[in-house]
Computed example of a mutant assay.
Amino acid sequence: MVSLSQTAGDSGGKDMRLSIRSLVSIAVLAIGSLSITMPASAGTGAASFAPGTPMHFARAFPTATELLNGNVLRAAGYDGGQFFSDAEIYNWHSGTWTTVAPMHVARAAAMAVRLSGGRVMVIGGFGPGFSVLDSVEIYDPRADSWSVTGSLNQRRAEDFLAAVLPDGRVLVAGGFIFANPMIGLFVPTNSAEIWNPGTGTWSPTTPMHVTRGEFTATELKNGRILAAGGINAAGPDNTAEIYDPSRGDWALTGSLNIGRFDHAAALLLDGRVLVAGGEVGFGAAGGIRSNTAELYDPHAGTWSLTGSMTSARSEAEWATVRLPDGNVLVTGGFVAEETPQSSADLYHTATGVWSSAGSMSVARAGQAAVLLRGNRGVLVMGGLVAPPFSTSSVDIYR
Rank of each mutant, 00 (worst) to 15 (best):
131 S>P: 00
39 P>E: 10
83 F>C: 12
205 T>S: 11
387 P>G: 08
6 Q>K: 10
323 L>R: 12
24 V>L: 10
37 T>A: 15
136 V>R: 06
380 V>C: 11
27 A>Y: 08
166 P>K: 08
203 S>H: 12
227 A>G: 02
290 S>Q: 04
178 F>M: 06
54 P>W: 09
6 Q>I: 07
239 T>Q: 06
343 S>Q: 09
396 I>R: 03
377 G>E: 08
142 R>S: 11
64 A>N: 02
397 Y>P: 09
251 A>S: 15
344 A>T: 08
78 Y>D: 04
221 K>C: 07
133 L>T: 04
290 S>T: 13
185 L>G: 04
254 G>Q: 07
235 G>V: 00
143 A>P: 00
255 S>H: 15
29 L>A: 11
242 I>G: 00
273 V>H: 00
293 A>L: 09
90 Y>G: 09
134 D>T: 07
324 P>A: 15
47 A>E: 13
147 S>W: 04
390 S>R: 01
62 P>V: 01
125 G>T: 02
147 S>M: 08
201 T>G: 04
267 L>D: 14
272 R>E: 15
54 P>R: 11
358 G>S: 02
15 D>L: 11
167 D>Q: 11
368 A>I: 09
159 D>G: 12
379 L>N: 03
35 S>K: 09
31 I>Q: 12
45 G>K: 07
56 H>L: 04
156 R>V: 08
200 G>L: 06
245 P>N: 05
18 L>D: 08
222 N>S: 05
162 A>N: 05
328 V>M: 13
7 T>L: 13
369 A>C: 07
226 L>W: 12
223 G>K: 08
162 A>C: 07
322 R>T: 14
348 H>Q: 10
331 T>F: 15
59 R>V: 09
308 S>R: 11
184 G>S: 01
80 G>F: 10
4 L>W: 15
327 N>M: 03
19 S>N: 14
172 V>S: 13
237 D>Y: 13
392 S>F: 09
275 V>S: 02
264 A>I: 05
154 Q>T: 05
332 G>W: 01
169 R>D: 08
306 T>S: 05
150 G>W: 03
352 G>Y: 03
389 F>K: 09
61 F>E: 06
77 G>A: 04
138 I>C: 01
109 A>T: 10
133 L>Q: 10
262 D>N: 15
50 A>Q: 05
43 G>Y: 03
156 R>D: 04
223 G>F: 10
376 R>M: 05
177 I>C: 08
226 L>N: 06
102 P>N: 13
108 A>Q: 05
294 E>N: 12
15 D>S: 08
163 A>L: 00
109 A>N: 05
249 D>E: 14
24 V>W: 12
282 F>T: 14
227 A>H: 07
369 A>N: 04
346 L>R: 05
247 R>G: 14
66 E>F: 02
361 S>I: 01
120 V>I: 15
368 A>Y: 10
232 N>V: 06
70 G>E: 00
183 I>G: 04
143 A>M: 03
166 P>Y: 03
208 M>C: 06
325 D>T: 11
159 D>P: 00
10 D>A: 15
199 T>K: 00
69 N>S: 03
10 D>E: 11
344 A>Q: 08
81 G>T: 10
83 F>W: 15
53 T>M: 01
342 S>D: 15
277 G>I: 09
